[in-house]
Design a protein around this nucleic acid. Structure first.
Length: 274
DNA sequence: ACTCGCCTGTCG
DNA sequence: CGACAGGCGAGT
């Protein structure tokens, strides 16, 4: 479910709640996520450790403790929620960290496409899912990286935006939204888009991500994304095309179309996107 | 550079 | 019942 703005929203809501606090208890279940959750490792290594920082790269969160870092990815359905201790676990809760000060961090992921691993400094430097990421989509160098990759790629521009090895953090919602803002059809071959339009697209990607963060991310329907304090994001009301098939384009008199590409929905306005 | 599989839940 | 869901990676 979460893309960069939602993960950043979670990160910001974790900071005030847990930063500087020590882990006092761990409940972990050895469920199969993207990789099996090492319940025994979490339970053995985390108690007594202090949380020093929560950082983000693309859609990954890194919770840095004294000598280990928990790397967490929310997949499609993952949530991180902070609750007062004790709070009963909802179904599909795979990890609960109790912190001094009476707070609990719950990691819940019904579909189990997410990831939670505990790594030391050496392991994190070679952890594949992280090392193969491109620059974070909000970093200045992401603009250069996107333009350079697009010039060399025969893939549709939409696929390039979703490629985490090019820039990290854009998912299905914001790929459609950025292309709409840029007036570029999603199926356009990346190398066929002019340099000027690519440069503009690269900026607009950052604009749409920033706008969404400012709104606390996108929450679609019930059971959708929530920040760690349980609050929903309200960027959904500002979406131009995502989820709006058949509705009026907000920039021209066209009608938003939905198309399925490799089992993912792509939304665009055929009138103002070329 | 694609397809498919991984999972559960919701909605029509 | 099938369609669909905000992601990723193994395999071809």
């Amino acid at each position: 479910m979460p893309e960069l703005p939602e993960v950043e929203t979670v990160r910001r809501s974790l900071d005030p709640a847990l930063l500087g606090c020590r882990v006092v208890s761990v409940q972990a279940h050895p469920v199969k996520l993207r990789v099996r959750l090492d319940a025994e490792g979490f339970a053995r290594r985390l108690p007594g450790a202090r949380l020093h920082a929560v950082t983000r790269l693309g859609k990954y969160l890194m919770c840095r403790f004294d000598s280990v870092t928990a790397v967490i990815h929310l997949g499609m359905s993952g949530r991180l929620v902070v609750r007062p201790s004790p709070t009963a676990s909802v179904p599909h809760t795979h990890l609960v960290l109790g912190f001094e000060g009476g707070q609990e961090l719950h990691f819940v992921d019904p579909r189990r496409f997410g990831l939670a691993v505990l790594l030391d400094g050496e392991e994190i430097a070679s952890f594949r899912p992280l090392t193969q990421l491109g620059p974070d989509a909000l970093a200045p160098e992401a603009r250069v990286a996107l333009v350079a990759s697009a010039r060399a790629s025969r893939a549709p521009i939409h696929a390039l935006l979703l490629d985490q090895g090019v820039i990290a953090g854009v998912g299905n919602i914001y790929a459609s939204e950025a292309l709409h803002r840029a007036g570029i059809r999603p199926d356009r071959r990346a190398s066929g888009v002019s340099g000027a339009r690519l440069t503009r697209l690269a900026s607009l990607v950052q604009d749409v991500l920033g706008d969404s963060i400012a709104s606390g991310g996108t929450t679609l329907g019930d059971g959708g994304f929530v920040a760690a304090d349980g609050s929903a994001g309200y960027y959904a009301v500002r979406l131009d095309v995502y989820g709006r098939a058949g509705e009026a384009c907000r920039r021209c008199s066209g009608t938003v179309q939905r198309r399925v590409v490799r089992d993912r929905s792509v939304y665009f306005c055929p009138r103002c996107q070329r």
